[in-house]
């Protein structure tokens, strides 16, 4: 899914802080790395792209869809079908097993899985090396396993866009690169567009494009 942004302007309620992106495009199947210091609006940008935060000024096109023209309900449906998320804190549900965590998006969105769903779970788990944690709860497995589980969850719905917010922020250096490699490889295989927010500039060589968000952030004094 191609992601295009033009003349995007976003400011918080107080008006002191503003994001301003004149022009940005991520072609379908490519990856974008976003770097920049904390508080420069990277996460806000991800929320805008994911249609959780509605855009007020400028335009956003996701594939051939303009989210500004969609109702909230349509946006939710769109997110559920097309976007996968990876979080810095993994976003796993502590009362569910690994397998149930993978299915969590299906549970809460009411989306029905097709006949291949179970097979895909096994396949993904196998690829990420987490078959042994499918029956265990998140708090009983390692950090690296947790994030791999979280990435599997994001991939299971076969989204065309993956948004990852500091996916390696809580991982040790060895895990960091291996997991990011996994993520990039999966996206390449599935043809999904990948947008990764990170403050770790050492990891940016994996992305097709890298932008520094401090260029887009403005603070009015």
């Amino acid at each position: 899914m191609k992601v295009e942004v033009q003349n995007l302007r976003y400011s918080y309620g107080t008006g002191d802080f503003r994001i301003s992106i004149p022009d940005l495009a991520v072609p379908s199947g490519q990856s974008l790395g976003i770097v920049g210091p904390s508080g420069c609006g990277k996460t806000t940008f991800l929320n805008i792209v994911s249609t959780v935060t509605r855009l007020r000024q400028g335009s956003l096109t996701l594939g051939d869809v303009n989210p500004a023209e969609m109702t909230d309900a349509k946006c939710r449906e769109f997110r559920a079908r097309n976007i996968g998320y990876v979080y810095q804190d993994f976003g796993l549900i502590d009362y569910l097993s690994g397998r149930e965590n993978l299915l969590y998006p299906f549970f809460v969105t009411g989306r029905k899985g097709d006949a291949t769903l179970n097979g895909r779970i096994e396949q993904l788990a196998d690829e990420f090396g987490i078959t042994h944690v499918l029956g265990r709860k998140p708090q009983t497995i390692s950090q690296g396993e947790r994030q791999r589980l979280a990435i599997c969850r994001a991939m299971l719905g076969m989204p065309s866009l993956i948004l990852a917010d500091e996916p390696t922020g809580n991982l040790d250096p060895a895990n960091k690169s291996s997991i990011l490699d996994h993520l990039c490889r999966q996206c390449q295989t599935s043809g999904a567009t990948l947008i990764v927010v990170t403050h770790d500039r050492n990891l940016t060589d994996r992305f097709d494009q890298v932008i520094d968000f401090s260029d887009f952030a403005q603070v009015n004094r």
């Binding site: 449906e77 769109f78 997110r79 559920a80 079908r81 998320y85 804190d89 549900i93 809460v108 969105t109």
Partner: peptide
């Protein structure tokens, strides 16, 4: 709260 935030983000109804 975090769980419901994530749920909303991945497309669950608001009143989940």
């Amino acid at each position: 709260r975090r769980e419901f935030e994530i749920a909303n983000q991945i497309g669950a109804p608001k009143r989940i």
